[in-house]
Design a protein around this nucleic acid. Sequence first.
DNA 1: ACATTGACCTGGGAGC
DNA 2: TGCTCCCAGGTCAATG
Length: 272
Amino acid sequence: MPELPEVETTRSGIAPYIENQQVKQVVIRDSRLRWPITDNLDEKLCGKIIQSVSRRAKYLLLHTTEGTLFIHLGMSGRLRILTAFQPAEKHDHVDIVFANDIILRFTDPRRFGAVLWTSEPPLQHPLLNHLGPEPLGEDFDAEYLFQRSRKRQVSIKTFIMNAEIVVGVGNIYASESLFLSAIHPQLIAAKLTKKQAEKLVAAIKLTLEKAIAAGGTTLRDFRDSEGKPGYFAQELWVYARQKQGCKQCGHPIELIRQSQRATYFCPYCQKI
DNA sequence: ACATTGACCTGGGAGC
DNA sequence: TGCTCCCAGGTCAATG
């Protein structure tokens, strides 16, 4: 469920509550996530102070002086700050309790998420070290995207969702960015022109920035760290709008499948 | 190296 | 009401 804007919304929501706070207790109710939660996480984390909370791709990194806890929300994961006790429910798998009694609670019905500890520099971890540039970073530019797309035979939509090319662009924002840049999602990546690369990079950055500003997109169950939904859904041009009129030209939005994922686009605004 | 597909899970909604 | 089927904001591993 969460793409970069939702993860960033979660990051900025939890950071003020847990930065510079000392971990008092770790409660693990179910360690069966995408990978088993690191053994003896309580021993590793208890007594440590969270120096800062950062984000790399869709991972949240909780830094201490002796290691880093990194968390992925998968498709249905969620982090909440509890300032008063609440009984744990069915999918509340992990609580990190701080010395001031604030609780960071990880919930994940589908258990595609991850909660892992590393004492190495986190960006060198095998799950992180192969990732492409951040979409909002300066190194993600038209020249980069154009060069990387040469000779690539996948569709441009599949291409920009490849985390080795650029991270953070998930199923919603891929369709949205392609609409904004007027590029057909089935265009072969190798056929992207330099001009289209410029428009697409700008569209990805703008879409993600606006979604972050709106607190992410809530279609069904995304909630921020305080339990509130994101408001970007009302700004979506095409996603989940099949058969409805294009907000730009009125033609019905089409729904197709690419790599087993739904893609939405306007056949009039986005010609191949 | 690149492309495609299956796998991991649970819950909700549509259709019968 | 209840059953079955399909779908879902991700991404890794296995296979050509």
